[in-house]
Amino acid sequence: MVSLQVIEDFLNTVDERTFKRHGESHVPGERLTSPQALADWLTDRGLDFGNSPPRAADLETAIALRTALRQALVADTGAAAGLAEHPLRLEPDASGGLRLVATSGPAWLNAIVETVAGSVARGEWSRIKLCAAPDCRWAFYDVSRNGRGRWCTMEICGNRHKTRTYRERRRHEA
């Protein structure tokens, strides 16, 4: 199983941010642009794709899973909707317990699906969120005490929101 940090990175392989910071417009982009780009991303995170590098169909599957998981975060429906196309089963593990096993295909894809499913089972998935700023939508792991964090970073998105709210309130008072 991989870490939730890898899942966060996977969700952020598409960058939808369009805000301006210090007068510079952020340029959105897609990191999974080819099977080779997928292979590079997997290699950088230690995810095994065996002797056969990812193909175009693998790229499509990865993007479809990422899209479904991001949509589940937006709709706040949990990860079940995102995992609907990826079968899971329980298998005995070495300690005599049970573990979730994905049977989606390539080992790297199974590792991602198993990590998401495991995080749901442990109650950790609810801490994976998309930034509430409509011009950001960056995925982040909410480390706030009560689990109600809304911004990927308080210094950027949270501050921009609070500044807008303050200016709006001042404008209405005037």
Rank of each mutant, 00 (worst) to 15 (best):
M1P: 09
V2W: 05
N12T: 00
V14Y: 07
V14R: 14
D15N: 14
T18Y: 05
G29T: 00
E30D: 11
S34A: 08
Q36W: 13
D40R: 12
W41F: 07
D44A: 15
D48T: 15
D48C: 11
N51M: 08
P53S: 03
A56Q: 15
E60L: 08
E60S: 14
T61V: 11
L65R: 07
T67D: 15
A68Q: 03
G78F: 09
L83R: 03
A84I: 10
A84M: 06
P87I: 00
R89S: 14
R89E: 15
D93Q: 10
D93K: 03
A94R: 10
S95G: 04
R99E: 12
L100V: 04
T103D: 14
G105Y: 12
G105D: 01
I112P: 03
V113R: 00
V113A: 01
E114S: 05
E114P: 08
G118Q: 03
S119N: 07
R122L: 14
K129T: 04
K129I: 12
C131I: 00
C136H: 01
F140K: 02
V143Y: 11
R145D: 09
M154Q: 12
M154L: 04
G158H: 05
N159K: 08
H161C: 09
K162T: 00
K162H: 10
T163W: 05
R169A: 13
